[in-house]
């Protein structure tokens, strides 16, 4: 299922395998993520979406195969070498991963304090600017535990982009959020991609927003990835994709504006797994 090598890939997986205990997570996975685009990684829970993202950040090493980030094979990198790569990557974790011993402003300021020699005043104004950008202008003095889920995710987003990364990895930004917050974060991410030319990689099982955002979809199924432009993939007859789409669209169709009728038409046989 690997596709022809395209030169503009910013991040490329090549034959990556990973086992956790007896469970195979990746089985020769190959795929690429184009520069300056929004790629959405879809897959059921346990399909390895988060693992994929953690591998790009070097938090998880593959058993075999290679991961290339910004023209470097990071597979064998030491922690120190990885730090150089990570300077170009921002990551938004599923729970936000804000340090809960620090205020929101201190969290956002942390990368600046650690890696730049900016004066305290400049740091504060930069932090303010970022917090305004994510719509959290008056929350700098709060601690992460005082924020709602959507707010802490936006604060974490502010921290992830404060060093102006080239690549932004976003793990499950929509899980557990109400539709308004989903829209808000979705808009923020798309905005970032448009204005900063970020290479954006988002994992999600939220079909509606994924389809709205994605320039490229990556389906994680059975330890491999099926990647391509959304239109192509949605029309594809690959059984595994169809199955996933139907299951997902059933659960979201009632609440979201996604039109599932074309998908329904493609379903040839009644599927027992529909009621998942």
């Amino acid at each position: 299922m690997s596709e022809p090598e395209e030169p503009e890939f910013r991040i490329a997986f090549d034959g990556v395998s990973l086992k956790r205990g007896e469970r195979v997570i990746f089985d020769g996975l190959s795929c690429g993520f184009p520069r300056g685009r929004v790629s959405v990684v879809l897959g059921g829970s346990g399909a390895g979406k988060s693992t994929l993202i953690r591998m790009i950040g070097g938090l998880q090493r593959p058993d075999s195969g290679s991961v290339r980030v910004a023209e470097q094979d990071i597979t064998g990198f030491s922690e120190r070498e990885l730090f150089k790569v990570r300077d170009r990557i921002g990551m938004l974790f599923q729970g936000g991963a804000l340090l809960d011993s620090m205020t929101v402003a201190e969290n956002v300021a942390l990368p600046l304090r650690e890696h730049t020699r900016l004066a305290e005043m400049d740091i504060e104004s930069e932090v303010d600017r970022r917090l305004v950008a994510v719509g959290l202008s008056d929350t700098g003095h709060l601690y992460p535990r005082e924020l709602s889920g959507g707010m802490s995710r936006r604060a974490a987003l502010a921290r992830a982009i404060v060093m102006d990364p080239e690549i932004l990895l976003v793990d499950e930004p929509f899980s557990g959020l109400d539709p308004i917050n989903v829209r808000r974060i979705e808009a923020l991410l798309v905005d970032l991609n448009r204005h900063l030319d970020l290479t954006l990689i988002v994992t999600s099982h939220h079909m509606a927003s994924s389809l709205r955002m994605a320039d490229r979809l990556v389906f994680m199924v059975d330890g491999i990835a099926i990647a391509g432009p959304p239109d192509d993939l949605l029309k594809s007859a690959d059984e595994r994709i169809v199955e996933f789409l139907i299951a997902e669209s059933d659960s979201f169709a009632e609440h979201h504006e996604l039109d599932v009728t074309p998908l329904m038409d493609r379903r040839t046989t009644p599927d027992r797994r529909k009621n998942s």
Binding site: L59, E79, R86, D87, M91, A97, H115
Partner: peptide, 10 residues
């Protein structure tokens, strides 16, 4: 994931 968060901030 706070420690991973730190790692990702180098």
């Amino acid at each position: 994931e706070q420690l991973d968060g730190l790692r990702m901030m180098s």
